[in-house]
Design a protein around this nucleic acid. Sequence first.
RNA 1: GGCGUCGUAGCCAAGUGGCUAAGGCAUCGGAUUGCAAAUCCGACAUCGUGGGUUCGACUCCCACCGACGCCUCCA
Length: 560
Amino acid sequence: MSAHPTLQIYNTLTRTKEPFRTVAAGKVGIYLCGPTVYDKAHIGHMVGPVIFDCITRYLTYCGYDVNWVVNITDVDDKLINKANERGITMLDVAEENIKDYRDNLAALGVDQISHFPRATDCMDEIIAFIAQLIERGFAYASEGDVYFDVLKDEAYGKLSNRSVAETLGDGGDQAARKRSPADFALWKSAKPGEPSWESPWGPGRPGWHIECSAMSKKLLGETFDIHGGGLDLVFPHHENEIAQSECCHAAPMVTYWAHNGLLRRDPSAGKIGGKSERDAGADDGGGGKMSRSKGAGGLADLIKKQGGERIRFFLLRTHYRSTVLFSEPAIEEAGIGLDSFHRLFKRYTRVTGKDFYAIKPPTKRGAAARGLATPSYEKFLAAMDDDFNTGGAIGELFELARLANKYCDDHDLENAGKTNTAAVAEFTTLLTTLKELSNILGIFTTAPAASGGGELLSQVMQVVIDLRAESRAKKNFAVSDAIRDALKPLAIAIEDRAGGAEWTGGGDGAVDGVMQLLINLRATSRQSKDFATADAVRNRLAAIGVTLEDRAGGTEWTKA
RNA sequence: GGCGUCGUAGCCAAGUGGCUAAGGCAUCGGAUUGCAAAUCCGACAUCGUGGGUUCGACUCCCACCGACGCCUCCA
């Protein structure tokens, strides 16, 4: 596959959208700055991985061979401090948080990463890189530290659009060792008791920026295609990376610098994990701010509560360069939209007897007969071509869902139209295209986890649905409606269909609730001398291994 | 202060120098349903304010107001 000229990518370096071209034909190298693993991840750490996962999927779909690297910074002051606080090693701190990070990525469906290098695994490359910078006159050793000589780099400041004069701070604690306050550390000498590595300049550890230059060179080469990260990394991190790599190689480091927007919790609270949160100190519960401790540990819990697909979908609704206001109600709202797709997938099964998640759509961009889906298909790709506009692309997914539902309605595919093979084929094409496009976004890749409550709930619900169907057949709507109403507080919804009722929802405690509903139904039936219904309840529960025992204080149920 | 980003309906959010400014949530009608749910159809925006450029701007330029980011660690 050759270049893809219709794709435009916004480049921070030029502050414009540019046509996409690659360093090597057909190949794309991507480097995304990953986390410093001194603590648990927060949702803001997922923005980059999710969008780059989509970018990788899309470029792969367009025929490129993508190599995507996400680094892990596992040596740093904060890790050392955290290890000391907790009385464990820096390595322990890193391992714990890397696991958390990777679990979170997996839950959000981020599975396209090719390499996951850790700074501590690349010490040789880092030291060699620093040595080369010294040799070429862009860095100098000073009292066991090594600094990058910013004044030697004429291009310094080009990414963040500032002059060296503007970057001059007070030089920090190590100012006395620097030639210029703007110089930054490539190697930091070890203080007593700190983890350290041997180097030509004495024992120490790498500065923050050098690992990315060394690791990207190792895995992607001196010049590669896309470098990503949060907008907050533009300066100083990425500016310094460019300085290091381009001075060392005398070649461009990256073609496109792509920075994602940051998450905020509240319109006035600043970015998540940002300054306003750190300054807030103890959690005062006010202002909608998320304290660092709460925010830092919250992602795994949030995923558990909301589900990874919802969070991914929520993040993808907005263009990646925008600021996103994050809140749980907003995620839940996104989930409501998602549910309408899940219902359509069940409808597909009712019509065709097949599983939506088992559909194998085309995996490469190209001409295929897409029938009624064609306009939306083209708009979807046009949106992705325009700087990976996932928000616009998702709009087309909803459009496809609407078309599919309408087609199903118009052709009565769940009933009489089921045998209309041409119509079913057209309907299938709509769903296949929906699968093809949602694969690019990495959503709807696997069926949602079964409702909480497990197998017993499914069995008991079947009993409830059967009983209700019989009531309806006898026009005994008082009973059938009472059942449906009683399920509502348990977060279980019933939908009546031509082929029988379907239920969704439930969760922890739902089994008890449903059982109580049946027990109550049996009691009221007995009161109204409807012994047929009362006995049916007991007998059918017995058939699934549940026995009812009437006691003085009420009826109890047990599962064999 | 310097350098940037942004301001589209009740909320979220695409997009365009000129036909009806996507889509989602919510709300209100209608079809359908025993009643619901689901689904479909329909209603719901003079695009922050004020100027300018233009035959024509929400889209380009300037100013102002407001929000946010970076300039120190940060995805």
